[in-house]
């Protein structure tokens, strides 16, 4: 009950915070529009630092990954979820296993693989609202 009241009384403050948060979001939205043109050529000069935690080979040439990973992922999620196809080369969990930072174990967070590049390209990634960004994470769950 206490927590609820706390949330409730914090409302006016959070309201302001939300509004303020909305501003950069709106700006980000503006910023996204030119992003695809950037992404089109994977050879642009100043790239963000990309740390490859587990050296080896990606599921496709880096060039192609840079350009097409979003389509691969979006195509794959329908195959996996709707058709039930598993064990194909593209899986989001697969990306995370290889690309998670050795320090934090995550693909998100400052300087880590997915986030650093996306912050640079100003592309919002909402996948990790649901998908676990940490490699090898074991959920516990709590009794109801």
């Amino acid at each position: 009950m206490n927590k609820r009241e706390a949330i409730f009384s914090a409302f006016p403050l959070c309201l302001c915070v939300s509004v303020v948060r909305f501003v950069p979001f709106a700006l980000a939205l503006l910023a996204v529009s030119p992003a695809p043109t950037f992404a089109g050529d994977g050879t642009r000069t100043d790239k963000p630092v990309i740390e490859i935690a587990k050296p080896g080979k990606c599921i496709a040439p880096a060039e192609e990954m840079r350009r097409n990973h979003m389509d691969m992922l979006k195509h794959q999620r329908d195959r996996t979820l709707r058709l039930g196809i598993r064990g194909e080369p593209v899986t989001l969990n697969g990306c995370i296993e290889c690309h998670a930072s050795q320090k934090t174990g995550s693909v998100l967070g400052e300087g880590n693989f997915c986030q650093s590049c996306h912050a640079y390209a100003a592309v919002k990634l909402d996948c990790f609202e649901c998908h676990q960004p940490k490699a090898g994470f074991k959920a516990t769950g709590v009794k109801p």
Partner: peptide
């Protein structure tokens, strides 16, 4: 603004 707040915090 209230809707944004709901969106951000969730329907809790």
């Amino acid at each position: 603004a209230a809707a944004l707040y709901m969106e951000h915090e969730g329907h809790v």
